[in-house]
Design a protein around this nucleic acid. Structure first.
Length: 263
DNA sequence: ATGGTAGCGCTGCTA
């Protein structure tokens, strides 16, 4: 079973690269973030032609999340359990059951700055995500929460922590909110398999040649429940997908489990 | 030197 997550920074701008990547990697399920399109503009047909079903939640040129699966999609739900998706203004979470695994594609709010009301919303959003798991899942089931968390879990998950004084993504509050989410019963797949490896970045700023300088952050995560943790076989970042013309500023994260995908 | 890039959509915001 191969699961992946990728913040594509506009699916309309990236559909060619995403389709090519799917053909090359053949994930069983791909979680997308920042599709930046409305549901009616979502290129479901392109994924269908590759053998994938899809569900998408997007309303505008901002945010937007999707789940692309070649092992089926059951019980899809846009937004959180206690929200009406029609009333939600920012489309940041969609979940579905694929191959018996409850999977989430999440795009955690950026937070903008420590003084911003959006920073408080970010902390609250992470709490809401935990509430959703609490209300709808059990930690002894197969659950995976994949996406762009906009939090670097540890200092070693950024290229130079001294550059982040007074910045978001690295504060104790954000890390505590992420920890509280994990305390529900989730494990950071990359850290499980690479406990001592640094520079496992998934995002690099477009500006200033950050990618080639190695100035990145590990903010895209695959969090898995205990029944999946025991089946972890591989976790890696496809940095090649960050190279070449018109890349997303994020690279895809790929997680492989010792489970049969069923087809 | 207080910078830079990309996407969206059309002026400046978001990341």
């Amino acid at each position: 079973m191969k699961l992946a997550t990728w913040n594509v920074n506009s699916l309309r701008a990236r559909i060619g690269r995403v389709a090519q990547w799917i053909e090359q990697v053949h994930p069983d399920v791909l979680m997308l973030q920042e599709t930046k399109c409305k549901d009616e503009d979502f290129p479901a047909q392109a994924f269908h032609e590759l053998g994938y079903e899809s569900v998408h939640f997007g309303k505008s040129q901002w945010n937007g999340v999707a789940i692309i699966s070649r092992i089926g999609i059951e019980d899809p739900r846009a937004a959180f359990f206690d929200e009406d998706p029609a009333e939600v203004s920012e489309c940041r979470v969609i979940s579905a059951t694929c191959g018996g695994i409850r999977l989430y594609s999440v795009y955690v709010p950026n937070g903008r700055s420590l003084e911003s009301e959006h920073y408080q919303s970010k902390l609250a959003w992470l709490g809401h995500l935990r509430d959703d798991l609490e209300a709808t899942c059990s930690a002894d089931q197969m659950v995976g929460v994949f996406g762009d968390f906009n939090v670097a879990p540890e200092d070693r998950d950024v290229w130079d922590i001294s550059q982040f004084v007074g910045a978001t993504h690295v504060t104790e509050e954000e890390r505590a909110a992420l920890q509280a989410l994990c305390a529900w019963g989730l494990y950071d797949a990359v850290r499980e398999l690479h406990p001592d490896e640094d520079a496992l970045y998934t995002w690099w700023d477009y500006r200033g040649g950050s990618f080639h300088r190695g100035w990145g952050m590990r903010i895209d995560l695959g969090l898995v429940s205990a029944p999946l943790r025991s089946q972890l076989r591989f976790a890696g970042i496809d940095r090649d997908a960050r190279k070449g013309p018109q890349p997303s500023d994020h690279a895809p994260l790929v997680i492989e489990l010792d489970l049969e995908s069923g087809n």
